[in-house]
Computed example of a mutant assay.
Amino acid sequence: MSDPAAESRIFWQHHVEAFSRSGLSIIDYCRQHALAHSTFQRWRKLLATSVAQPAVVPVKLEAAPILPPPVGPIMLGSPWP
């Protein structure tokens, strides 16, 4: 069984994205796709605000390699007399 709310969101998200690539005015895009202008505007606003909210993104961290100590004598103090 499908989720009608999710299907509706996907439908409108597709149209909002297609509109932004179309180069058409909102009125012309809605006419060409038989969409209600007011509904399109409502979904466009809704999707814009839901996208603008910050999201938690998982980040994979890896430990940096541990380097061996330098080889050679360790000089303490100044090399000049």
Score class of each variant (00 low, 15 high):
79 P>Q: 10
13 Q>C: 05
46 L>T: 15
38 S>N: 09
30 C>I: 01
65 P>F: 01
71 V>K: 05
60 K>F: 12
18 A>K: 13
20 S>F: 12
49 T>P: 02
40 F>N: 03
23 G>F: 01
50 S>T: 14
36 A>L: 08
16 V>K: 04
39 T>K: 14
65 P>N: 08
59 V>D: 07
36 A>W: 03
2 S>W: 04
37 H>W: 11
33 H>W: 09
21 R>G: 08
14 H>E: 07
39 T>G: 05
5 A>L: 15
63 A>P: 05
28 D>W: 02
80 W>G: 06
70 P>W: 00
64 A>Q: 13
45 K>A: 05
61 L>S: 09
69 P>I: 00
39 T>M: 14
40 F>W: 02
50 S>I: 11
62 E>M: 05
5 A>P: 00
64 A>T: 12
22 S>E: 09
78 S>N: 10
5 A>F: 08
19 F>Q: 06
60 K>R: 12
32 Q>E: 15
43 W>V: 03
16 V>T: 05
62 E>A: 04
53 Q>M: 10
42 R>L: 08
73 P>H: 05
71 V>D: 03
80 W>Y: 13
2 S>V: 15
53 Q>P: 04
25 S>H: 13
49 T>A: 06
20 S>T: 12
39 T>E: 03
38 S>W: 08
26 I>M: 10
75 M>P: 03
19 F>C: 05
3 D>L: 01
76 L>E: 10
21 R>T: 07
68 P>D: 02
25 S>A: 11
31 R>K: 11
32 Q>T: 03
3 D>F: 00
51 V>K: 10
33 H>K: 10
48 A>R: 14
7 E>L: 04
81 P>K: 05
58 P>E: 09
3 D>R: 01
63 A>K: 08
38 S>L: 05
21 R>N: 07
70 P>Y: 00
42 R>S: 11
69 P>F: 00
3 D>P: 01
42 R>Q: 03
67 L>Y: 00
78 S>L: 09
81 P>Q: 11
28 D>K: 13
28 D>C: 03
63 A>N: 12
77 G>N: 04
78 S>V: 06
66 I>C: 00
64 A>E: 13
20 S>D: 13
21 R>L: 03
73 P>M: 07
2 S>K: 15
6 A>Y: 13
15 H>L: 02
8 S>A: 14
48 A>G: 11
77 G>L: 04
25 S>L: 09
28 D>N: 14
53 Q>D: 07
56 V>Q: 12
62 E>Y: 15
50 S>N: 13
59 V>G: 10
25 S>W: 09
4 P>Q: 07
18 A>N: 06
78 S>H: 06
50 S>H: 15
31 R>G: 04
44 R>N: 12
14 H>S: 09
76 L>S: 07
33 H>A: 05
23 G>N: 02
34 A>K: 10
35 L>P: 01
43 W>H: 07
9 R>M: 01
12 W>N: 04
